[in-house]
């Protein structure tokens, strides 16, 4: 299953500069594990023992996965996952 994953500028050193990469898996955790097989080191920049890192936001089709099932959120073919650092608004 192909999931489109959008990578923020500060993590593109792990993806040879690619803005968009493809991953596969039935959950977000599986997709991130799959990315790690090709982009070594990216996994621990997004996830730690507790789940998503504090200053990392991950969106499934624009919805924050923390309000779904976190890294265990189910994904399916054609979904878009966006990774972004938390920034201030206001």
């Amino acid at each position: 299953m192909a999931i489109e994953v959008r990578i923020p500028t500060i993590l593109r050193n792990y993806t040879d500069g690619a803005k968009i990469v493809e991953g596969s898996g039935a959950t977000l955790a599986e997709v991130l594990a799959d990315l790690e097989t090709r982009y070594t080191g990216i996994h621990e920049r997004i996830v730690d023992e507790a789940g998503l890192r504090r200053f990392v936001n991950v969106y499934l089709n624009d919805e924050d996965v923390r309000f779904l099932d976190g890294i265990n959120t189910a994904v399916s073919d054609g979904d878009v996952v966006t990774v972004l650092p938390a920034v201030a608004g206001g």
Partner: peptide, 11 residues
């Protein structure tokens, strides 16, 4: 989102 480090985010 041009942070130097992902741990420099803000909540």
């Amino acid at each position: 989102y041009g942070l130097r480090n992902i741990d420099e985010g803000f909540i």
